[in-house]
Simulated scan of single mutants.
Amino acid sequence: MNTIQNKYYFQALDNFPYNMEETIEALNYALSYEKNADCLCLLARVYSEILNDYETAKEYFEEAMSINIHSLNLYPYFIDCLLWNDDYKEAKKLINFALTVKGIDKAVILNKKSLLLEYQKKYKKALNMINNARLHTYNSNFMTYLESREKQIKLKKKSNEKSK
């Protein structure tokens, strides 16, 4: 990205998700210079997280990946989009690939894998994945988050066992 494009990208990022009009305007300016993975990822997030238009979001995420497959920012958001759209097979493939990308935060991606397993009601495997994520966590805030996820999964597992 060039300096002017960076300026507009950071404006869009700064306004997201609180001022969508400014976000979209800044993104349009940034993308008018050149298409890049970070801008397309943010645009995909608008479609996924704000508009709940997962199919359009997937197109933008895929375009971002085609520009820069090593863009570390896009994987967690793309995985969320796939999970929200019940595209579990695609999510699993993307998670497995993301874990091979150099520099990726493995704890975050392993947590996404636990989420996928939780969506599929595979609670025991989801708990194992939380434990794997812990091994790759070097941040006390994320460790606390993983502990809360573990409690949530255990509650669901217990409820699921009672309902059988």
Score class of each variant (00 low, 15 high):
residue 3 T to I: 07
residue 4 I to L: 09
residue 4 I to R: 09
residue 4 I to Q: 09
residue 8 Y to W: 11
residue 8 Y to L: 03
residue 10 F to H: 12
residue 13 L to R: 07
residue 17 P to W: 00
residue 18 Y to L: 00
residue 19 N to G: 06
residue 19 N to S: 09
residue 19 N to Q: 04
residue 20 M to W: 00
residue 22 E to T: 15
residue 22 E to H: 08
residue 23 T to W: 04
residue 26 A to T: 07
residue 26 A to P: 03
residue 30 A to P: 06
residue 35 K to Q: 08
residue 35 K to C: 09
residue 36 N to I: 08
residue 36 N to L: 00
residue 39 C to L: 04
residue 40 L to M: 02
residue 42 L to D: 08
residue 44 A to I: 01
residue 48 S to N: 10
residue 52 N to P: 08
residue 53 D to A: 03
residue 54 Y to F: 08
residue 56 T to L: 15
residue 58 K to Q: 15
residue 59 E to I: 15
residue 60 Y to M: 07
residue 61 F to W: 14
residue 62 E to S: 13
residue 68 N to K: 00
residue 70 H to G: 15
residue 70 H to T: 13
residue 73 N to R: 04
residue 73 N to P: 09
residue 75 Y to G: 01
residue 77 Y to A: 02
residue 82 L to E: 05
residue 83 L to A: 01
residue 86 D to V: 03
residue 87 D to V: 00
residue 99 L to G: 06
residue 100 T to R: 02
residue 103 G to N: 14
residue 103 G to R: 05
residue 103 G to P: 13
residue 103 G to A: 13
residue 104 I to Y: 12
residue 107 A to P: 02
residue 108 V to R: 07
residue 110 L to R: 07
residue 111 N to H: 12
residue 113 K to D: 14
residue 114 S to M: 05
residue 119 Y to E: 12
residue 123 Y to L: 00
residue 124 K to G: 08
residue 126 A to V: 03
residue 129 M to S: 15
residue 130 I to R: 01
residue 132 N to Q: 10
residue 135 L to R: 11
residue 137 T to H: 11
residue 140 S to R: 12
residue 144 T to K: 13
residue 146 L to H: 11
residue 146 L to V: 09
residue 148 S to G: 15
residue 151 K to V: 04
residue 156 K to G: 07
residue 163 S to W: 06
